[in-house]
Simulated assay, not measured.
Amino acid sequence: MRIDLVALVVEEYDPAIAFFTGVLGFELVEDSPSLTNDGRAKRWVVVRPPGAQTGLLLAQADGERQSAAVGQQVAGRVGFFLRVDDFDASYQRMREAGVVFVGEPRREAYGRVVVFEDIAGNRWDLLGE
């Protein structure tokens, strides 16, 4: 048993794809036409870190309720955790790409960590040594 996908509500597909692939270095696993439950066109977009099994389903907001959830997937808490092999290189690359960081890197019992925001404003921990 494993978690395959986690849905992340975004405003638009293409800027979200660009952020996750171009800025974070994820792979675009799938970008296929699909339909909503009531038959309207949408896309099935999956990204994931290289070598990872679990991916993110980038789900374009559909309606006011979903639009209100963009950037608030976990009510302002850190809800996503990205572990990297080279913390310093990843942090520097992301800073140069304009990623918004909340505070400075710090050392915790589990390694180095700094909070950043994704394209929608959701908070993530960047983790590494």
Rank of each mutant, 00 (worst) to 15 (best):
M1R: 10
I3F: 14
I3M: 14
D4K: 08
V6T: 15
A7W: 07
V10E: 04
E11Y: 09
Y13K: 03
D14N: 11
P15Y: 05
P15E: 03
P15L: 03
G22R: 04
V23H: 03
F26S: 01
E30K: 15
E30C: 07
D31G: 00
P33E: 12
P33M: 03
L35M: 13
A41F: 08
K42S: 11
R43N: 01
W44Y: 14
W44N: 10
P49A: 15
P50A: 07
T54A: 15
G55R: 00
G55M: 02
A59Y: 14
A59C: 11
A59H: 15
E64G: 09
E64T: 12
A68E: 12
A68V: 02
A69Y: 05
A69I: 04
V74I: 11
A75L: 11
F80W: 14
V84H: 04
F87P: 04
F87S: 06
D88G: 09
D88V: 14
S90W: 05
Y91L: 14
Y91D: 01
Y91G: 02
R93A: 15
E96I: 08
A97H: 10
G98T: 09
G98F: 07
V99A: 01
R107C: 07
R107H: 13
E108W: 09
V115K: 02
F116E: 02
F116P: 01
E117G: 08
I119P: 00
G121A: 09
R123M: 06
D125V: 03
D125L: 10
L126Y: 01
L126C: 02
L127T: 08
G128Y: 05
G128R: 01
E129A: 14
